[in-house]
């Protein structure tokens, strides 16, 4: 069995976490609840986008988008050595994982904004898994590093074939797919994560949702908040010869 490692650009990851925090906080502070509603919409939209990328990646490589594959390298959890995970149960139907240290939470807690961070975790994981696997999955983030008193995040995800329509069972689980041969021996290759690209994608989501909820003023404010990050992104991309 091949052993894979997913390379992670920590600096870009931090920049992305800062970008999220600045924009989400800025929208909330200026527009109150409506601003926060736009932020939540944007997170869900971003999560659906990433979930769809993940699903497409797995299907392209001949893997079922069930939970065990979904949470492989390049899945929804932050990448890199700073994300310390303790896997408790990993199977096509269940994934239980404790995250003892999360690079996003480190950043958000250090900025004294756990509440803004919490919005991300609350909305991101359910929307991601619903898009990548099935809307019948249950996603539970019971403990969160951004909750006062919690010392780790606990993510428990369930996807029960009994809750799925017959057709979806075959799409998601080997044992319900008559065309499936022997189970794959090789682990799925890692899906690279590009946090510079994430900034652009999240920006698009923020802009779209801010405009929908808050109109022109929301759009302009989002652009103002995003400008320094996008400028930095462009410089990085140029210096990397993209």
């Amino acid at each position: 069995m091949k052993g894979y490692k997913l390379l992670c650009d920590n600096q870009a990851q931090d920049r992305w976490a800062d970008y999220y925090l600045t924009t989400a906080k800025g929208l909330g502070e200026r527009f109150g609840m409506l601003g926060r509603a736009a932020v939540r919409d944007a997170i869900r939209m971003f999560a659906q986008l990433q979930g769809q990328h993940r699903r497409d990646f797995l299907v392209e490589h001949g893997y079922k988008p069930h939970l065990a594959n979904l949470f492989g390298l390049g899945g929804p959890l932050p990448c890199g050595d700073r994300c310390i995970k303790e896997w408790i149960r990993v199977s096509p139907q269940e994934v239980f994982v404790n995250v003892a240290q999360c690079p996003y939470a480190l950043r958000w807690n250090a900025a004294g904004e756990p509440e803004v961070g919490k919005m991300f975790c609350e909305e991101y994981y359910p929307a991601y898994v619903h898009q990548a696997a099935s809307e019948k999955a249950q996603i539970n983030t019971g403990r969160e590093l951004v909750n006062e008193g919690d010392t780790y995040c606990r993510l428990s995800v369930y996807l029960r074939p009994a809750n799925l329509p017959e057709k979806q069972r075959g799409e998601l689980f080997d044992e319900f797919d008559p065309s499936m041969g022997l189970p794959q021996k090789e682990a799925c290759p890692p899906q690279p994560v590009d946090y510079n690209q994430w900034i652009l994608e999240l920006h698009t989501c923020f802009v779209t949702c801010a405009q929908q909820r808050l109109g022109q003023e929301g759009l302009e404010w989002t652009e103002t908040l995003s400008r320094p990050f996008l400028a930095e992104n462009n410089m990085n991309n140029l210096s990397m010869g993209r």
Partner: peptide, 27 residues
């Protein structure tokens, strides 16, 4: 809303059930 159920003492190694329920005005 959301009802998240992240630990369950039915499973070995768990000694409590953890529920997280959220109902946000912005949603």
């Amino acid at each position: 809303g959301q009802c998240t159920f992240s630990e369950n003492f039915v499973y070995m190694g768990e000694n409590s059930c953890r529920f997280g329920c959220y109902y946000r005005p912005s949603n």
